[in-house]
């Protein structure tokens, strides 16, 4: 089953003083399978939030169609099975956390008794158990993000759409959000989230899409996109005299880094590694570590951004 599908989805806005029609999303064709955790990457202004708003019916498409859980997005009832956390969420600040969640539950059509149980459980899950009766105006940014996540999870939706869920959070907050997403994944739910915090995406996603200038530049499984090939090998050697370090420097891709008696060499492949290891041992040195380096999502993302800028 497809959790999300778009066909030729386009969005134009009228921008500037003359209100010129500007296309911010170009013929997006995207599918997300049910149960996947999909990371939607892109620099600021790439069209990530516009895509999410199109999926939720907050903005209307200029062309193309979209489906959530195999129902066309024009029908409001499709959103009964979807939870959404907007970017930098803003809520009625005079409500308490519990009142806000109760309002969300009423709008979602959740029966009162079930809502009460769910609210208590969700507050516990997002670590706001003691803050449920506090007004939202007194919440910190991290707490607002967490109450936003809690409202997105009301009614146990099979599809959760999160817009920059880690944005503005400290490392602890980011880890908590990551853990919640991983838990949703373990429960078999589909999570579609936009982000520009690449290490987080790399850590938790099955598939990623990279959006550049309103166009989907790359999409696929992480292992497909990044490949399994080793790009380089980092070798750390200890106790080498300076002339030997200089001699071995010719094998490396970049000048070796020397600090506190340790020399770090970045080498292209096995042949160079063999030569270096042999020479280090001959010279009376010791090998501290050998680390193969694979291409990361960050490198792929930056390469795509650079390629996009050239285009």
């Amino acid at each position: 089953m497809l959790a999300i599908k778009t066909e030729g989805l386009c969005k134009d806005y009228r921008l500037g003083f003359w209100r010129r029609r500007t296309r911010v999303l170009h013929a997006l064709d995207l599918t997300v399978e049910a149960g996947e955790t999909f990371g939607y990457l892109g620099p600021n202004g790439a069209g990530k939030t516009t895509t999410l708003k199109l999926l939720l019916g907050l903005v209307l498409p200029s062309a193309g169609r979209a489906w959530l859980l195999e129902q066309e997005v024009g029908d409001p009832e499709v959103r009964a099975a979807v939870g959404f956390l907007p970017e930098n969420p803003s809520f009625y600040d005079y409500l308490t956390g519990e009142e806000f969640l109760a309002y969300g539950a009423r709008l979602a059509g959740i029966p009162r008794r079930r809502a009460r149980e769910q609210i208590a459980a969700l507050l516990d899950q997002v670590g706001l158990m003691g803050a449920g009766r506090m007004q939202l105006r007194k919440y910190s940014k991290g707490m607002l993000q967490r109450i936003g996540l809690a409202q997105a999870l009301l009614g146990d939706p099979p599809l959760v759409i999160l817009d920059e869920p880690m944005s503005g959070l400290d490392p602890i907050g980011r880890k908590e959000v990551r853990d919640i997403i991983l838990r949703l994944r373990a429960e078999g739910r589909t999570v579609f989230f936009s982000s520009h915090i690449i290490p987080d995406v790399e850590m938790i996603c099955d598939r990623v899409g990279i959006l550049l200038g309103g166009r989907l530049a790359r999409v696929g499984r992480l292992d497909e996109l990044l490949g399994t090939e080793v790009e380089s090998v980092e070798v750390t050697a200890v106790g080498l005299p300076e002339p030997i370090v200089e001699e071995l420097g010719v094998l490396a891709l970049a000048p070796p880094l020397v600090q506190g008696g340790r020399a770090l060499f970045r080498l292209r492949g096995d042949v160079e590694v063999d030569k270096l290891l042999r020479r280090v041992l001959e010279a009376g040195g010791r090998i501290a570590s050998v680390t193969p380096q694979k291409r990361g999502l960050e490198e792929l993302f930056l390469a795509e951004v650079r390629a996009g800028a050239r285009r």
């Binding site: 939720l56 959103r79 009964a80 907007p86």
Partner: peptide
């Protein structure tokens, strides 16, 4: 956003 993202 959080209101209109509901089935309304």
């Amino acid at each position: 956003y959080t209101i209109m993202a509901r089935p309304i």
